[in-house]
Design a protein around this nucleic acid. Structure first.
Lengths: 205, 205
DNA sequence: TTGTCAACTGACCGAATGTTCGGTAAACAC
DNA sequence: GTGTTTACCGAACATTCGGTCAGTTGACAA
């Protein structure tokens, strides 16, 4: 006889996961505060009250989304490749991985980048984000200290410009369209930020 | 006898200008949709209804703010220095001016960069912004076409990364604090974007 | 056929929203 | 003083908000 299906087949309708991903999509379109539960219901094809069967409420939806973004970033900085080797190489690796995470988890990271701290949920996310930023900041300072970065620009400023560039990808990137792959994107970004846009008469090796 | 003061002394209280600047400040703190008229009233030190004596409503407040940002940007692209000379030099000038405008009109530009198109006011601002972006895009393409930019990165991508970097300044710049001046900021940004962060054994001229 | 239960509806709640309006106190003009 | 204007208050407005809850539906098991 057939074994009782171990994970229930979820024969139709939504589950917490599908609600989250659709909700985050709408949050990014209209902004979290600009999105009503009615808007979400419409996007899900159900009534408002059905949402509460799957998730506890609007703010928890936001919290779960922000955690997805932050968990990805913290998993990266915990990797040994962010801790061992020359600072400049670790920095390049972290930039490349940041681009990858941003693209892989685009809607979640986009949401994170727009958080202003209007609730405890947002404040908690902001605090985790600041911790990530401090890690990056330290890494840039190390690279500057060992002479790998040009000495005429303040490392704190480099950190902001470099990761400002990375984060700005969230403003326009659409994976479906004919956009560059995450790797090509990271290549272009690293070329610009580390070697410069200007064409050179004869390049170094 | 004293001539009747030509511009009324506005003996006390607010005027449309002070309401706008304080409102925009609060909009940037909490987001436009996250800001209630009650929030604005509190920041202004009056009741909600007093606001309507000075301005027609919340959305018009937003509209006026967005126009301040956009007018600044369009005044720049109308300048002859954006139209004459080698493309690469015009591009550098436009980047530098963009940084200056962003800093000069920081709260207004910040607000503009967060608009998502939730109302006709926002949609109109988005359309004007897209027109500005098209101008920039053309300029980068010209610089690429005449060989001033490295040929191994798509000009459309360069546009997004370069102005993504510029716009990201709005996320952290605080003029009051010990931040760099607009000029120093533009210098650092141009050094990174055009010449690269990497220190070089021997520099070119 | 009966019962169970996941998934949902529709009516509703209190609170908050942007906005309006009648009134009013202080400053000024004469 | 008398009248007018400026800048505001307080109460109320209709609407929308996030959220609750009793009930219904339809797939499945026994």
């Amino acid at each position: 006889m057939a074994a009782p299906t171990p994970t229930r087949p979820r024969r139709r309708g939504h589950d917490p996961e599908s609600v989250l991903s659709i909700a985050v999509h709408v949050f990014n379109e209209r902004g979290y505060d600009g999105t009503s539960m009615e808007d979400l219901a419409r996007a899900l094809g159900v009534t408002k009250s059905a949402i509460y069967y799957h998730v506890p409420g609007k703010e928890q939806l936001l919290g779960r989304a922000l955690d997805r973004a932050l968990d990805g970033l913290f998993a990266m900085v915990a990797d040994e490749r962010a801790a061992a080797g020359p600072a400049i190489e670790r920095l390049e690796w972290v930039v490349r991985q940041s681009v990858r995470i941003l693209v892989d988890r685009l809607p979640y990271v986009t949401l994170l980048l727009r958080v202003r701290g209007n609730s405890v949920t947002e404040q908690a996310a902001l605090e985790r984000r600041r911790e990530f930023d401090r890690f990056i900041s330290r890494l840039v300072k190390e690279a500057a200290a060992d002479g790998s970065l040009r000495p005429d620009v303040d490392p704190a400023l480099v950190t902001r410009l470099l990761f400002g560039t990375v984060n700005s990808i969230a403003e326009w990137y659409e994976p479906a369209r004919g956009n560059a792959s995450p790797d090509d994107l990271a290549d272009a970004l690293l070329k610009m930020a580390f070697n410069g846009l200007r064409s050179r008469p004869a390049a170094q090796g």
